[in-house]
Write a protein that binds this DNA or RNA. Structure first.
Lengths: 109, 109
DNA sequence: CAAACTATATAGTATTACAAGGTAGGTGAG
DNA sequence: CTCACCTACCTTGTAATACTATATAGTTTG
């Protein structure tokens, strides 16, 4: 789906963290995975900036390893802070979606 | 709930449009309504900038009328373009929440 | 009249996703 | 070999947008 850019703001960090929490992975794979999921517009540059931001926030463990294919990869995994952050993210997301649903169902008062 | 700021980005326009679609209303009322709904952090300035943005995009009809209470109000209602925009917003929102749900349920592949 | 509430508005800032482009390793076709 | 293509990471600049802080002003109430 296209034109999600603005809606993605703020959600992208959680999305990337969630993907990493499912198993050690790296930027290029994350990008392709998200595109396959349906976020067609996501480009590599965006994912890399998110990854660097998450790393700076101290939420990720990083390890550079050779690849069987192409240049070396930077493998990411969640550390404890990252897991807390992710859990916090899903809580906020749940609240947001619930509130949005309330809003939508509301009839004219 | 607090700390939703970044998640709200992009959603706020839809939220405000949806509120207006439920019946003619004005900035101050919208702000208080959203705070009551649960978006505690939303401040007046934010709502007004969203309203002016939506107006500039040609999605709203505006009418300034005297208030029974306090200074005059700017009453907003959705025009046709606004209704299309809102419907489009909910479609994107639906896609986003569905995709997020898929992502969350995904087990390690 | 002063405080509190109602109501709108704006200038400045921080965050963040994208656009565009660069760097580089590996592989296969010609 | 070299050119194209895929894999992989990174950076600079820009646009969008929500908040902070503040200003302005009408109305009500003590």
């Amino acid at each position: 789906m296209k034109g999600l850019t603005e809606l993605l703001k703020g959600a992208l960090e959680g999305i990337v963290l969630q993907r990493i929490s499912q198993g050690e992975t790296y930027g290029y794979e994350i990008t392709n995975y998200l595109i396959d999921l349906g976020f067609e517009d996501i480009v590599e540059g965006t994912v890399y900036t998110v990854l660097l931001r998450l790393e700076k926030k101290g939420l990720l463990s990083v390890e550079r390893r050779k690849s069987e294919m192409g240049p070396p990869r930077k493998f990411y995994s969640l550390n404890e802070a990252g897991q807390r952050y992710l859990s916090d993210f899903w809580q906020k997301w749940g609240f947001l979606t619930a509130t949005m649903a309330k809003l939508k169902e509301q009839q004219n008062d």
